[in-house]
């Protein structure tokens, strides 16, 4: 309480602003790709301009239906998903989704790029980077639910570096590389991305897992395996963010199980400059707004005047 009173007497509001790759955000809270669509479902509920930004649904070169259903299974404190990058393809995203997105969100948005070849990553990145509303590009080399692309780029330092070098050539906008936790040495992959020209690292994507149906004796998810997310993975994500912070100088977007303002502070102390909130959006559609509203009072509780001062404080 003493701390709270001191800060209140100063009559200053805790500063939630952060700078991510040269762009200042009002707060570090970013709904994660694949849990927020293109924003309109949530814009029906509240003004999503309160967000730091959001990362829209992963986009590929061609339209994709994704995996067969069931795509979802519940787990203790989390869930498995194997959506498989369902999206209308980059051209329709630009012609149909982004104009609708622009009607409900006026800040720079984060475009999430996926692919099955280096050429596809380059093509999608180039097209999305040319859109004015796109502030950052998050290059997803870590989707565990597709075959022949996605995670296979993010589990090998050389291939990760190859993708980053290639997309680096087609845009000057900030490139944030989204990494998979399904690796032995996350620091090595992060360093490879930094050396190849990445402006930031985001992690973690989901952890590969599976569940069985005891009645059918078969996997619940049609794709057999899915990605585990939710509060259960928070300690794993925090550990990896901590390790990557030691390995690279570029900023980190931390994610994995974040569902409260306190989780945000903890992830930032581990080394994150900003955070993404994923699975929690699916259970509580207001969770990002709630976190943003609770950030100042939570900061006061821990004597934090500015979020920028706690980035990597645990090191």
């Amino acid at each position: 309480m003493a701390e709270v009173r001191t800060i209140s007497m100063d009559n200053t509001i805790p500063d939630t602003r952060v700078e991510l790759c040269g762009i200042t955000m009002d707060n570090p809270v970013i709904p994660a790709s694949g849990t927020f669509g293109y924003g309109y479902e949530f814009a029906e509920l509240y003004d999503i301009n309160c967000l730091g930004t959001f990362s829209f649904k992963g986009t590929t070169g061609e339209p994709r239906f994704g995996n067969e259903t069931p795509r979802i299974a519940e787990c203790p404190s989390g869930m498995l998903n194997a959506v498989g990058l369902q999206n209308p393809g980059v051209d329709k995203v630009i012609s149909e989704e982004l104009p609708r997105l622009a009607a409900v969100f006026s800040k720079p948005v984060m475009a999430n790029v996926s692919g099955f070849s280096v050429e596809e990553y380059v093509r999608v990145t180039e097209k999305l980077a040319a859109q004015d509303m796109v502030g950052w590009l998050e290059i997803n080399i870590s989707c565990p639910n597709v075959h022949g692309g996605g995670m296979s780029f993010g589990t090998d330092p050389c291939m990760a570096g190859e993708v980053v070098s290639a997309v680096r050539k087609v845009t000057d906008k900030p490139l944030i590389i989204k990494l998979s936790p399904n690796v032995t040495n996350i620091a090595e992959i992060a360093r490879s991305c930094e050396a190849a020209g990445a402006d930031g690292i985001s992690l973690i994507n989901t952890l590969m897992g599976m569940r069985l149906n005891l009645r059918t004796r078969k996997p619940i998810i049609a794709n057999v395996t899915g990605g585990y997310s939710g509060p259960a993975v928070f300690p794993v994500a925090l550990r990896m963010v901590y390790q990557v912070y030691d390995a690279v100088k570029i900023p980190i977007v931390g994610m994995g199980g974040i569902s409260s303002a306190e989780d945000v502070l903890e992830m930032m102390m581990a080394g994150a400059t900003a955070v993404e909130v994923g699975a929690a959006n699916l259970v509580d559609p207001y969770v990002c707004r709630t976190i943003i509203e609770e950030l100042p009072v939570t900061m006061e509780r821990y004597g934090i005047r500015s979020l920028r001062e706690i980035i990597g404080a645990a090191h």
Partner: peptide, 22 residues
Amino acid sequence: EERMGCGFGACMGCSCRTVTGY
């Protein structure tokens, strides 16, 4: 009926193909 993630259209967990698209 389908296994759902969110229930309100955000996660694409319960998609199906129809004559008029996904």
